[in-house]
């Protein structure tokens, strides 16, 4: 086998071994990153909030995402409607990604995407007039 192809094949198989390991880890500590990304992926917006405001949201029975407790130091991650978060004075918007800001926050409030939203909204499809003709 040509060395370059053999090298690429070996690299591919190594990645598959790592991926299988990650899959086996999915219910264990390492799987927390997938779980955290999943929670963030379902959030339309994210806000850093104070501990006092986080406790208020909890007292109002807004949902706490347990993945925050799987990190050290732990985080309070609470999902609440955007109109409720708009009334929180301490709320500071942050980009929804695994940034230093998000990882450093002790308390995060997330607003969810509408769960009944269809995958494709009318008009959102971008295959356009003038695209290549199909035969």
């Amino acid at each position: 086998m040509r060395p370059s192809l053999e090298y690429r094949l070996r690299q591919h198989r190594r990645r598959m071994v790592v991926r299988s390991w990650e899959y086996r880890q999915r219910r264990h500590a390492h799987g927390v990153w997938f779980r955290l990304r999943s929670v963030l992926a379902n959030a339309r917006a994210a806000y850093v909030i104070s501990g006092a405001d986080a406790r208020t949201l909890l007292a109002e029975a807004h949902r706490m995402e347990t993945v925050g407790r799987e990190l050290d130091p732990p985080k309070l991650i609470i999902v609440a409607p955007s109109d409720r978060i708009a009334r929180i004075a301490s709320a500071r918007p942050v980009a929804v990604r695994l940034s230093a800001e998000v990882l450093a926050a002790e308390c995060l409030a997330l607003t969810p995407f509408a769960e009944d939203r269809p995958l494709l909204k009318p008009g959102s499809q971008s295959t356009p007039a003038g695209s290549p003709s199909t035969r």
Binding site: R26, F34, R37, L40
Partner: peptide
Amino acid sequence: HAVRSNLTLLSLL
């Protein structure tokens, strides 16, 4: 699982 994991990565790019 790999597909869903990649979707979470895509969402946060």
